[in-house]
Amino acid sequence: MVREDGKRNFALREDSGEESVFSGNTPRQAALKAARRLDPAPSEDDADRTEIRLREKGTDKVHIYDGWAWNETAPDDKPDWMPEEITEANVSKKGIDHLED
């Protein structure tokens, strides 16, 4: 379901049963937001990939990604409020499942 601002909502179901909602213009944008919440590794090479399943609200689609996160030093021209170490993330699309009624 597309909102007035063009963004779509995607629900991430945790193992505990809780759902977090991420929004974005594309499923990848929402998956990147979800991946930044993963436990970050010291570097991208050391990061473990975790499967992220995002259900698109209003449809029967479940977008499946591998996501990973790592810590990185903030750029030299960072604003004053930004911490010295930031979390970066990346995702790789695995496919789409369709929910059955």
Rank of each mutant, 00 (worst) to 15 (best):
G17S: 07
T50F: 05
H63D: 06
S23C: 03
D97V: 13
E51L: 11
P75S: 06
S92D: 11
E19G: 02
G58D: 05
N9V: 03
G6N: 07
D48Q: 10
F10H: 02
R3E: 03
M82Q: 15
R28I: 01
I64R: 03
G95I: 15
D48P: 02
D60A: 15
V62S: 03
A69N: 06
L54P: 06
L38V: 14
N90Q: 12
I64N: 00
D48V: 09
L54W: 08
E51P: 09
D101G: 11
D60N: 13
S16E: 06
K61F: 06
E44F: 05
A89G: 04
S92F: 10
K33A: 12
E85S: 11
D66H: 13
E18D: 10
T50Q: 09
V21W: 01
P79D: 12
D97G: 08
S92E: 14
R53N: 03
E4Y: 09
H98D: 03
A30H: 05
S16Y: 03
K78Y: 07
E84K: 15
K33H: 12
E84I: 11
D60K: 15
L99A: 06
T87P: 01
W81D: 14
F10C: 00
H98C: 06
F22G: 00
R55C: 02
E100D: 10
E100H: 12
P40V: 11
E72N: 07
A30P: 04
M82S: 10
S20M: 11
E56G: 04
K94G: 02
V2R: 13
H63W: 15
P83E: 02
A89N: 04
K7A: 03
N25A: 13
K61G: 02
I96D: 09
R55H: 12
M1K: 01
A47H: 06
E56I: 07
E85Y: 12
R37W: 12
K93G: 12
V2T: 13
L99E: 13
K78N: 05
R49C: 13
E18T: 14
W81S: 13
E14Y: 12
E14V: 07
E85V: 15
K7H: 07
A30C: 01
D60T: 11
R55N: 05
E100N: 11
E88C: 15
R49D: 09
N9M: 05
R3F: 03
S92K: 15
P40C: 08
S92I: 14
A69H: 04
D77I: 13
D80S: 13
G17Q: 08
R28Q: 10
P42V: 14
R37G: 11
E84H: 11
S20A: 14
E18N: 10
L38H: 06
F10R: 00
P83V: 11
E18P: 04
V2S: 12
L32C: 08
R3G: 03
K93A: 15
A35H: 00
E19A: 09
S23D: 04
D76I: 01
I52K: 02
R37T: 14
K61R: 12
R37H: 14
M82C: 08
R8I: 01
D48M: 07
